[in-house]
Design a protein around this nucleic acid. Structure first.
Lengths: 353, 353
DNA sequence: TTTGGCACTCCTGTTATTAGAGTGCTAAAC
DNA sequence: GTTTAGCACTCTAATAACAGGAGTGCCAAA
């Protein structure tokens, strides 16, 4: 069951080699690669053991071995030494986040950085509204029975929603309602606000002040039919994946790209990571989605103001350079979180010259 | 040079057949298909003429013929009879646009309808800002030196932009400025507004009223560094294209998908159609983009309030069912335009029950 | 002008063959 | 006991040879 150090080392070497060139690794190749001064025959014995343990497998009798999902799992959990970011990548990333951007652009930058540096597909979930705190809300009369609700959240994003009201509201009513709302709910998370609102609505509406009533009306329309199909997912560089022959069969590729455009499954997968405190790696079938059978997903949550609000990561073939990818995903999450948090402190953008 | 009716008919039949099954069409097949009671030998003579004229070509000596780009061009220009929409497609489209939607959702619906009904990639450009008219503008103080500009355009879209000001503005200043702006510029197109503003700025600012000065400051920040990289293009169903073997080679597919994610070239191509009054069809190389070498693009402009503001269409292999695709694109453009225009008349959405 | 006939070309799929890579096993060497 | 050389074996990938079929162009006859 447990591996002796030599077997571990050979597994590590084999996987590194396979990640490099994508070819099954044979005993002779491995013997040279490992530099252990062991003959291919000895290596073959060890490889037979590793196969027995389900860590590697042979595509066919006379090919070398390739890692199984389990093999990769052991590799990333116990054998992998991540490489620090290169100085140039670091500079590039910092540069990208340093320039003036709004939150939407920041997320697109993050996604595109992830894909360009790793040459894999980059994904960023937009902050889950429930998790982010309310900073400011305003109501704006558009026409007789239509009000534009402007919601600014802690991460600096501005949300718009047009709601149809059951009676006209005067501008002053709207201002009062907004004031009431801001005083009462600012800095609370949207899910809190929703929760409190549900409670308030139980109360006798006769007892409410005018402003409060108005605010309640708005809020109901705003939060109740929040369809939230706004599957917020920024994907970049999908086409890099076409270069990997192991994902090659058109049918598989089709499924994968369908997953990218449907977004639902991906979003669901990424959402799992939002509850984890650190990075997560889903290897092959571990993700539970058929389209990702041959893929690995590396994710990291990002924080705004200390609070985890979203996740980002990359998708690529199981054979990816984990030791490079991991620190890149990690750093991107930090930088994005930092840029979004920095925003709320008022340092967003630069004053015009 | 000119085709006799029989040759035309055979060209039409050949292209229809090729569009159907994607196989080169031989003389025997064509003779049966055409139902003209002509022997394959006769057909061969005609086919030789058509090849001479550059309308069809043989992939190799002993294959049948396939249409050239020129052949398709003649086909769509002079031989094609479009088929009316099926009742079920019509219902489906109307249903999609009838339900309550905001402008962004409408565009996504249009794109997704296009792709699902044609089983090709659907594309919709978001309205070019310059072309759409200003309906309402508001300024909202976010923090000391930051103002949120809310711009509502004629198509019902709400645009947000945070600008950094050189001094704090009081809420009443902002309200006055907005009033001034709305009175002066409402219903003008954004490009007009920009143009007029440029003129105004030349004037002696001493002579301006306070509100006007404030408005000018806002406007300058708003319009001047309008980066407009917000390459507004909604693409759906790209993955349908993977099913077509003629686009098959991974390298070509890769280029095509790169074009989809870069968006720049596509946007540029679609923008050409904005100046045309009706539908446009780019066949193969006609589009001028290498990635679209094997593709055709069918586009139609859509109107908000009588004014063309954007275009939409589909991208597929040159071998696409033009007679079906054309009316679908046409109708989608009408419906999207109608839905966006309907919005501004105040019929947007439904009053809550 | 149309058609049947015919020789010819080229693709496609099948089969056979070979070279090469890699394996597992055994027996000898360390 | 571990390691290694040797060897027979397996499977793939590449190549060539071949047959079948689809389709063509051209010619001469209808």
């Amino acid at each position: 069951m447990s591996l002796n150090p030599r077997a571990e080392f050979l597994l590590k070497t084999l996987i590194e080699r396979y990640i490099m060139d994508g070819q099954p690794v044979g005993s002779r190749t491995l013997s040279r690669q490992a530099g252990l001064d062991l003959s291919p025959a000895t290596i073959r014995n060890v490889m037979a053991d590793l196969e027995e343990l389900g860590l590697i497998q042979a595509p066919h009798t006379s090919a070398g071995r390739i890692p199984t999902a389990l093999g990769y799992r052991v590799f990333v959990d116990t054998l992998l030494k991540v490489r620090p970011l290169t100085a140039s990548d670091m500079r590039r990333m910092q540069g990208e986040f340093a320039s003036e951007h709004n939150p939407q652009q920041l997320m697109e930058s993050a996604s595109s950085l992830l894909s360009q540096i790793t040459r894999l597909a980059g994904i960023v979930t937009v902050p889950r509204q429930e998790q982010t705190a309310l900073r400011q809300i305003e109501f704006l009369s558009l026409s007789v029975n239509r009000v534009l609700v402007i919601l600014v959240t802690q991460d600096g994003r501005v949300h718009n929603r047009v709601i149809n009201t059951d009676r006209p509201y005067s501008p002053s009513e709207l201002v009062e309602a907004a004031n009431y709302f801001n005083q009462t709910y600012a800095a609370r998370s949207l899910s809190e606000v929703k929760h409190i609102l549900l409670g308030e609505m139980q109360k006798d509406s006769e007892a409410m002040q005018q402003a409060m009533t108005t605010a309640m009306h708005m809020a109901r329309s705003l939060f109740m039919d929040q369809d939230d199909t706004s599957a917020g997912l920024v994907v970049s560089g999908e086409s890099y994946l076409m270069e990997f022959p192991e994902l090659g069969s058109i049918a598989k590729m089709r499924k994968l790209f369908d997953a990218f455009s449907t977004k639902r499954d991906l979003l669901h997968l990424l959402d799992q990571s939002i509850h984890a405190t650190g990075m997560q790696i889903f290897i092959g079938g571990e993700s539970g989605y058929q389209a990702l059978e041959e893929c690995s997903v590396v994710t990291a949550p990002y924080r705004v103001d200390g609070q985890i609000v979203g996740t980002l990561g990359v998708i690529g073939p199981t054979r990816m350079a984990y030791e490079h990818v991991i620190p890149i995903v990690d750093m991107t999450a930090r930088l994005l979180g930092g840029a979004l948090s920095g925003d709320q402190a008022g340092t967003y953008g630069q004053a015009p010259g």
